[in-house]
Design a protein around this nucleic acid. Structure first.
Length: 683
DNA sequence: AGCACGCCGACT
DNA sequence: GTCGGCGTGCTC
């Protein structure tokens, strides 16, 4: 083999085509100088059709079966970037295989845009900046001002840090039981064990990164921390990603996308609020960051800590079956703090006015008198979910979706929350001309208006996606609440997570019933977690301060529902046992594995026909193929959607089937847009 | 998925 | 006579 012969690079690129592409790489440049052979994991700039794109080198080949006339030359390699490692590629390969997507569609979207740009100015600048920061004196990663731990916390920290190899562990503890302290001290010990060790901490929401970041910076001064989430500007994102990739960052804090960070010496993974649905990506590669965290830990034979007050039934099931270890924090860690008292208000007996029962109004008034905060949780933004005409029965419907247009009073608009369609609120009914149109139902805006009128002396404040649309305004809004500038806080699920408000002693869920009877069998699991979580916002204050225990009010038409009883008793174990028994009885996950084939087309029937053919094309003894059904929200943005659920008791069988099935469906070259999701969560 | 090439309707 | 509709075919 002559040294002058070119080599061929097998490259993965971001395309739905499930194949790799081979390119020629000449070992001599135009001047005749010898070039080093590129390394697997390098990024390369290549011509692709009429475009120039960036791909990643998977293999170096001496020859290729691709006809010579088709082969094209690599345009450039990116030598300044240390190549992505084998271990990272193995993670991407696993995700691609497990979720049944082309490898390039996993790898390339997970990299910062500036890394893939044709021009390397941004990359060069970031690398230069990074080299200055490491140059900074590396202080010993000794934790500062550690809080003292109770026995359960200490046991959890010891168990995490003294275990050998891959140990998945569930940290089960109510809000306020001190999970964060366990994370920080476990991280401190792991970081102290070597000068290069890295710890990855995942949080469910971008809103939670700032306060977590503050904790970490305070606790580990001088240690490089990288945050990774979708809110970063491209420049920051590249810098942070590079600091993780080069090993300079020792703690990496991020949302689900951070699970794909390149981390050369990862030694501990922490997934906070592991049950949170946000860990599931709901478009493109539909991965579970929680599940991938466990996979990464197994791959590297390191501990992974999954924390929650209301663990996912999957994780709880794994504990019951001995696949995960359990560390429990059974007490609130703050001295004298007690669990809030949960009170159920029967809306059939206590008729609400403007959505508020008299008892709840009285409870709010009491808090105002004592200078304490109340939080009203209503998971519905806008003024009213629909506008209607009493005279003819017209209601505000989206013309493009199977959904109502939501009334937004502030900017006088009707808005579809699914496709973004907007129009002015009509002066009169579009069908009969009646000028007296009625908002039906209640959203956070209307509630805000009601409370402001009811308590003119109170500072009423609303936090939802509408009120925090501008970048950075969510952080400012939470800050306002923390500073005590708010008496009554109204919020959607945004306020349910993570934030601890010191003067908050009343939490109310105004209208949580809808989830009880949802078609989605996971809805009650989510509702329970959400209510436990929002309840956890209250009662952090020590009783010793002279206050009574905090209160949580739940307004419901179904006061005897077992979910609310479990909530009153703060009894996750009981709830989980019931739910798992139900799931086993009904043969649902985690006792069964599922995949969901979705199809969309202009006409519903086209989508259903496609699914019907898919259902019939490959019978398999170990796979249950259900009937195609229209999705609950059939039409979104003028596309009709339908789905087909397949199930199996065997994960390998489901995987093998899905692989063959996808190959078959691809070969049809149908014009129906379709996708297959493994382990779907929103059914 | 992009993007080009290619063959039929309403415009300067 | 051209601009542009989206059908189909390809991408190392």
């Amino acid at each position: 083999m002559s040294l002058l012969a070119p080599v061929f690079l097998r490259v993965a690129i971001d395309t739905p085509l499930d194949s790799f592409f081979d390119y020629r790489f000449s070992l001599r440049d135009e001047a005749g100088a010898l070039l080093p052979v590129p390394v697997v994991g390098s990024l390369v700039l290549i011509p692709f059709g009429s475009q120039q794109i960036t791909g990643i080198v998977l293999q170096i080949l001496q020859e290729t079966t691709v006809p010579a006339e088709k082969i094209r030359d690599v345009l450039a390699v990116r030598p300044q970037l240390p190549p992505l490692g084998e271990e990272w590629l193995a993670l991407a390969r696993f995700a691609a295989e497990y979720y049944q997507r082309p490898l390039g569609e996993v790898v390339l979207p997970s990299l910062p845009k500036n890394l893939k740009a044709i021009k390397t100015v941004a990359l060069d600048r970031a690398l230069k900046k990074l080299s200055k920061l490491t140059a900074a004196p590396a202080s010993a990663p000794v934790a500062q001002q550690e809080a003292s731990l109770n026995a359960e916390q200490a046991a959890a920290v010891a168990a995490v840090t003294e275990g050998q190899g891959f140990v998945p562990r569930l940290l089960f503890g109510v809000t306020g039981s001190g999970k964060t302290e366990v994370y920080l001290q476990a991280a401190a010990r792991i970081l102290a064990q070597s000068a290069t060790a890295q710890v990855l901490i995942l949080v469910p929401e971008i809103n939670l990164t700032p306060q977590f970041e503050t904790h970490i910076r305070h606790r580990f001064p001088g240690l490089m921390l990288a945050t990774l989430h979708s809110g970063l500007a491209e420049g920051e994102r590249l810098l942070h990603w590079l600091s993780a990739h080069t090993g300079a960052a020792r703690i990496i804090l991020g949302t689900r996308l951070a699970i794909f960070a390149s981390l050369p010496d990862l030694q501990l993974l922490i997934v906070d609020e592991e049950h949170d649905p946000s860990y599931k990506q709901q478009e493109g590669l539909r991965y579970s960051a929680r599940d991938l965290a466990v996979w990464r830990a197994r791959q590297r034979q390191i501990p992974v800590l999954l924390g929650s007050a209301t663990p996912s039934l999957e994780s709880w099931h794994a504990v019951q079956h001995g696949r995960y270890q359990l560390s429990e924090l059974s007490q609130r860690a703050v001295q004298d703090a007690v669990l809030p008292i949960v009170k159920i208000i029967n809306l059939e007996k206590e008729k609400p006015s403007e959505g508020l029962s008299q008892r709840l109004i009285a409870a709010i008034r009491l808090r105002l008198e004592k200078g304490e905060q109340s939080l009203l949780f209503l998971n519905r933004r806008g003024y009213a979910p629909v506008l209607s005409c009493d005279a003819c029965g017209w209601i505000s419907q989206c013309t493009r979706c199977t959904a109502n247009l939501v009334m937004h009073k502030g900017d006088h608009r009707l808005r579809c929350h699914h496709c973004g369609l907007e129009q002015r609120i009509p002066r009169a009914c579009p069908t009969c001309g009646n000028i007296d149109l009625q908002p039906l139902g209640r959203g956070t805006q209307r509630l805000e208006e009601t409370l402001a009128a009811m308590f003119p002396e109170a500072r009423v404040f609303r936090i939802d996606a509408d009120s925090t649309r501008l970048k950075g305004s969510a952080a400012a809004a939470f800050e306002r609440v923390h500073e005590g500038e708010v008496d009554i806080l109204i919020g959607t699920q945004m306020v349910a997570k993570g934030h601890d408000f010191q003067r908050l002693t009343l939490v109310a869920a105004l209208n949580p019933d809808a989830a009880l009877f949802s078609q989605d069998y996971r809805a009650s699991e989510r509702l329970f977690a959400q209510l436990m979580q929002v309840a956890g916002r209250a009662g952090r204050r020590a009783q010793a301060e002279g206050g009574n225990a905090s209160e949580v009010y739940v307004q419901t038409r179904y006061p005897d529902h077992p979910l609310y009883h479990a909530l009153m008793a703060h009894n996750y174990r009981h709830f989980a046992a019931d739910m798992l028994a139900e799931r086993e009885q009904a043969q649902l996950p985690p006792y069964m594995y599922q995949a969901l084939l979705r199809a969309e087309a202009r006409e519903l029937q086209t989508a259903l026909d496609f699914l019907q053919q898919a259902a019939a094309c490959m019978p398999h003894p170990m796979i249950t193929i259900n009937d195609p059904i229209p999705m609950t929200m059939t039409r979104v943005a003028n596309r009709d959607r339908a789905q087909l659920l397949i199930e199996s008791a065997s994960r390998p069988a489901l995987q093998a089937f899905a692989r063959l099935w996808i190959t078959e469906l691809r070969s049809w070259k149908s014009r129906v847009k379709w996708s297959l999701e493994i382990d779907p969560v929103d059914i």
